[in-house]
Simulated assay, not measured.
Amino acid sequence: MSASTHVLTLPGPMLKRGFWLYVWRVETPKGEMLYVGRTGDNSSPHASAAYTRMGQHLGSAKTQNALRQHLRKEGLEPEDCAAFHLVTHGPIYPEVEHAPGLDRAALMAKHLPLRDLVGAMEKALAEELKHAGYWVLNTVKWKHPHDPVIWETVRSAFAGHFPKLSGTYALGDLDRLQVAK
């Protein structure tokens, strides 16, 4: 293996903590694969920056490297992929303010409704990308509803990067499709 030089440009706003949605677009030897994710912890009142999740996905911590694990299920090592592109949108909501005097329970009470809204949009994004014909590695399981007004803004932002998303569903069609299954 010979050494080579690579450049990564990181937009400063990606360092802002909050609730983000993101899609990894991975150029693999088997073709393009996507992974859909979000920030906003399930077990703590924290919502990290998109940049933070970026590194964790390809790291070695088994509880954080979901993208690496999904690629391995496809028989691929991340190091053998040609490129990783991260499309992020956010922060959709800011991280819950950790004000003095708020205990963990009070922080979680403020955090969970936002996490649930973003988790619902994560699920909708993953399902719409799959329906549009993209190879999405992960399945997002989420039971909470999303805010349809915010979802349309988010969906439109991702459709600018994933052209097959445009026109795949009218608002609400995804819910009817799920009922029909």
Rank of each mutant, 00 (worst) to 15 (best):
L125C: 15
A109L: 03
G119Y: 07
A106R: 11
L112Y: 09
A124S: 15
H111A: 12
L112H: 12
K123W: 06
P100Y: 00
A106Q: 12
D103Y: 00
V118F: 00
G119P: 09
E97V: 12
K110I: 00
E95S: 07
K110W: 02
A124P: 09
R115K: 14
K123G: 03
A132V: 06
L117F: 01
H98C: 03
E97Q: 12
G101E: 05
E122R: 01
H111T: 08
L102M: 13
V96D: 05
L114P: 01
P100A: 10
D103F: 00
K130P: 00
L102P: 02
L125K: 15
H98Q: 08
A109G: 08
K130C: 11
A126W: 01
V96A: 07
G119L: 06
E122N: 03
L129Q: 07
L129P: 14
A109Y: 00
E95T: 02
G119S: 15
K110N: 10
D116W: 04
L117M: 09
K123Q: 11
R115D: 00
L129Y: 09
A120V: 09
A124D: 15
K130T: 11
V96Y: 08
H98Y: 02
E127W: 02
A109T: 04
P113M: 13
V96I: 15
H131Y: 06
L107A: 07
L114S: 02
L107S: 09
L129W: 10
L102N: 06
A124L: 03
A106G: 04
E95I: 00
R104K: 11
G101C: 07
G119W: 10
A126K: 05
